[in-house]
């Protein structure tokens, strides 16, 4: 299936958001996620199925003003 990961086309067969994060090497990373514009809390990632054309955001801490 093809999703949009952080604004870029990405092919994956990960079934859930949790699985996608793990495959990207983010299992223990300090990240937060959103699917199709809505926040998905860490404990809910396993119960969040991915569908074709989903827009996924994976973010981490960054410098800010």
């Amino acid at each position: 299936m093809k999703i949009l990961l952080n604004g870029e086309a990405f092919a994956t067969d990960a079934k859930t958001l949790d699985e996608l994060c793990a495959r990207l090497g983010f299992a223990d990373a300090k990240i937060a996620t959103a699917v199709n514009g809505s926040f998905v809390a860490a404990p809910s990632r396993g119960a969040t199925p991915l569908a074709d054309a989903d827009e996924i955001e994976i973010v981490a801490p960054r410098q800010g003003g």
Binding site: I58, P61, R62
Partner: peptide
Amino acid sequence: VTVSLRREAARARTGQGFWALI
């Protein structure tokens, strides 16, 4: 201190190092 969040790339993992600094 103010901080922000930005898209994290799987390879660069920029945010992980920044968090350690904070």
